[in-house]
């Protein structure tokens, strides 16, 4: 695939993934650019062109981890360890939010859960592919998705509550005195 077409196909998703990880637009843009630079340097050695997407996401994730010096190994969670109910949050409340608000809620979650969650929501990757990108077993992806969704819903509920509070029109202090 031509470099320009590869960039145009994947840069949005990669940027959204990078933004969820780095939590800063500048760092996300930089990670995305560096990922394509790595592709230009090494990616063309990839024999199987269909693996380009996975290669790009894996590379971006590794670049992020290297930057964070995130070398501690996280324990692999087992599917049986997780609770079986997710907190309820209304679809309509989320629908009213801006994408950046949902991204902000996501940014408050630990990176261990954030990375598989955003890859899942980008809908470009199966849970097996997410496991490959993050280099963890598929069962770990399942449990992290479950826990991550629970955490994200709790944050979204908080955001939805704040939005409701913000809709209360404060009384003008002058009018208050007159009243």
């Amino acid at each position: 695939m031509e470099f320009s077409r590869l960039v145009e196909t994947h840069y949005r998703g990669l940027y959204q993934f990078a933004l969820s990880l780095a939590r800063s637009e500048a760092d996300a843009a930089d990670l995305t650019q560096e990922t394509f630079l790595r592709w230009a340097e090494k990616g063309t050695q990839l024999r199987d062109a269909t693996k380009a997407k996975s290669w790009l996401y894996t590379t971006l994730y590794r670049l992020f981890l290297n930057r964070q010096r995130h070398i501690a190994k996280f324990p692999h969670d087992e599917l049986s360890d997780v609770e079986s109910k997710l907190p309820a949050v209304e679809s309509e409340a989320v629908r009213r939010m801006e994408g950046t608000e949902v991204m902000a809620a996501l940014a408050q979650i630990d990176e261990v859960f954030r990375a598989p969650l955003v890859l899942f929501y980008l809908e470009d990757h199966s849970y097996q592919e997410i496991a490959e990108i993050l280099d963890v077993p598929a069962g770990t992806v399942m449990s992290r998705l479950w826990r991550g969704k629970a955490l994200l819903r709790a944050k979204l509920e908080d955001h939805a509550g704040e939005r409701k509070d913000n809709r209360i029109i404060p009384i003008n202090p002058k009018l208050r005195k007159e009243a």
């Binding site: 470099f3 320009s4 960039v7 145009e8 840069y11 949005r12 998703g13 940027y15 959204q16 933004l19 969820s20 637009e25 996300a28 843009a29 930089d30 995305t32 650019q33 560096e34 394509f36 630079l37 949050v89 679809s91 989320v94 629908r95 939010m97 801006e98 994408g99 950046t100 608000e101 949902v102 991204m103 996501l106 955003v118 899942f120 929501y121 980008l122 809908e123 969704k149 994200l152 819903r153 979204l156």
Partner: peptide
Amino acid sequence: SLDAVIGERLRSVEPPADLLQKILVGGKVT
């Protein structure tokens, strides 16, 4: 249904307007 809405909201986040061009022309800062 809820996942679809969350996913749609996240995918609506736009990259900076000049990012594509920067990648293509190599205007990289670092």
